[in-house]
Amino acid sequence: MSWNVRIGINPISWSNDDLPSLGGETPLETALSEGAEIGYEGFELGNKFPKEPQALADKLAEFKVACVSGWYSGMLAEGGLDDEIERCHAHMAKLQHNGCKVVVYGEVAGSIQGQIDTPLAKRPKFTTDAQWQTYAKKLDAFGEHLLARYGIRLAYHHHMGAWVESPEDVDRLMAETSSNVGLLFDTGHTWFGGTQGGHSVDVVAQLRKHVRRVVHVHCKDVRPQVIQTARNDNWSFLRSVLNGAFTVPGDGAVDFRGVLTELHQAGYEGWLVVEAEQDPAVAPPYQYAKLGHDTLRALVNELGAR
């Protein structure tokens, strides 16, 4: 009996949206052709993909890959619900047209994730119960709207440099919201977000706490020594990326067997997306994308055979 999950990839392995100088010269078609050749079933979107819904569908069909999802830059931490509902329409309609079931919600209001010279210690934080509750209420309502209007689940991406970064932040967000707010569980950001004072978080145990809320998964591996140095020296998120904090599954310290076992036992059905911000000049995209795919495929086949 096979396990009903699909393996996709984010084009960030070939070209980086936050740091366009990384792989900026690489055509979209290179990523699509190489990803399809490796065996990936779908791609998350990046800034080189067509913006018009049918043009996007046509481009993906050319390479016989699906549209997995796409990052949405949310502003609910500082903005209003009505403005967000209006602002999101073009993006959500594009995802809906291309058969997506989830949207990657990344909170960018006040975030420092794209600022290469701003250390992670300066990230924004909710400091009162009222702030958490106000934010959660807007997220819940937004998630309800997306599901009713577009048939798309909100997959909240906890992210370095943003309001929800640490495992404790994720715990609080999940406690304050309903199932209208799904969790995008990112293995790399979980490890990085939990690395403080010489200690790292147990990624599998953190997943276990919230696995029933997980609607999307980003599979990043980590280089713990780089992350520890980033914490000790108070690097920015992008400086951490440039120095190799992240890599693909099979090339770092994350227990992906444990992660996938938890997802399998919980009945997760959806996408497993390889997303590893690296400098393509240092980490050849095809080689690393293949390692990530083959690592996940072997584990999925093994678990599905049980």
Score class of each variant (00 low, 15 high):
residue 148 A to P: 06
residue 148 A to W: 08
residue 148 A to G: 06
residue 148 A to K: 15
residue 148 A to Q: 15
residue 149 R to S: 14
residue 149 R to P: 03
residue 150 Y to V: 00
residue 150 Y to H: 11
residue 151 G to H: 08
residue 151 G to P: 06
residue 152 I to K: 11
residue 152 I to S: 03
residue 152 I to P: 01
residue 152 I to Y: 08
residue 152 I to H: 08
residue 152 I to L: 07
residue 152 I to G: 06
residue 153 R to V: 00
residue 153 R to S: 13
residue 155 A to N: 15
residue 155 A to M: 13
residue 155 A to I: 06
residue 156 Y to P: 04
residue 156 Y to R: 06
residue 157 H to S: 03
residue 158 H to M: 04
residue 158 H to R: 05
residue 158 H to N: 14
residue 158 H to C: 02
residue 158 H to Q: 07
residue 158 H to E: 05
residue 159 H to Y: 00
residue 159 H to P: 01
residue 160 M to G: 15
residue 160 M to Y: 00
residue 161 G to L: 07
residue 161 G to N: 06
residue 161 G to T: 11
residue 161 G to M: 04
residue 162 A to Q: 10
residue 162 A to Y: 00
residue 163 W to P: 02
residue 163 W to A: 08
residue 163 W to N: 05
residue 163 W to M: 00
residue 165 E to P: 07
residue 165 E to V: 10
residue 166 S to C: 01
residue 166 S to G: 07
residue 166 S to I: 07
residue 167 P to V: 02
residue 167 P to A: 00
residue 168 E to S: 15
residue 168 E to F: 13
residue 168 E to H: 12
residue 168 E to D: 15
residue 169 D to A: 12
residue 169 D to I: 07
residue 169 D to R: 10
residue 170 V to I: 15
residue 170 V to D: 01
residue 170 V to A: 12
residue 171 D to M: 13
residue 172 R to M: 08
residue 172 R to T: 14
residue 172 R to E: 10
residue 172 R to A: 11
residue 172 R to Y: 02
residue 172 R to L: 08
residue 172 R to C: 05
residue 172 R to P: 00
residue 173 L to P: 04
residue 173 L to Q: 10
residue 173 L to K: 09
residue 173 L to T: 09
residue 174 M to Y: 03
residue 174 M to P: 02
residue 174 M to R: 03
residue 174 M to I: 14
residue 175 A to L: 09
residue 175 A to M: 03
residue 175 A to K: 11
residue 176 E to D: 15
residue 176 E to F: 08
residue 176 E to K: 11
residue 176 E to A: 14
residue 176 E to Q: 14
residue 177 T to H: 06
residue 177 T to N: 09
residue 178 S to G: 14
residue 178 S to I: 06
residue 178 S to N: 14
residue 178 S to E: 14
residue 178 S to C: 06
residue 178 S to F: 15
residue 178 S to H: 11
residue 178 S to Y: 14
residue 179 S to A: 13
residue 179 S to K: 10
residue 179 S to N: 12
residue 179 S to T: 10
residue 179 S to R: 13
residue 179 S to E: 13
residue 180 N to H: 15
residue 180 N to P: 04
residue 181 V to W: 09
residue 181 V to T: 05
residue 182 G to W: 08
residue 182 G to P: 09
residue 183 L to D: 07
residue 184 L to T: 05
residue 184 L to Y: 05
residue 184 L to C: 03
residue 185 F to K: 10
residue 185 F to V: 08
residue 185 F to P: 03
residue 187 T to W: 06
residue 187 T to S: 12
residue 188 G to I: 10
residue 189 H to A: 06
residue 189 H to F: 07
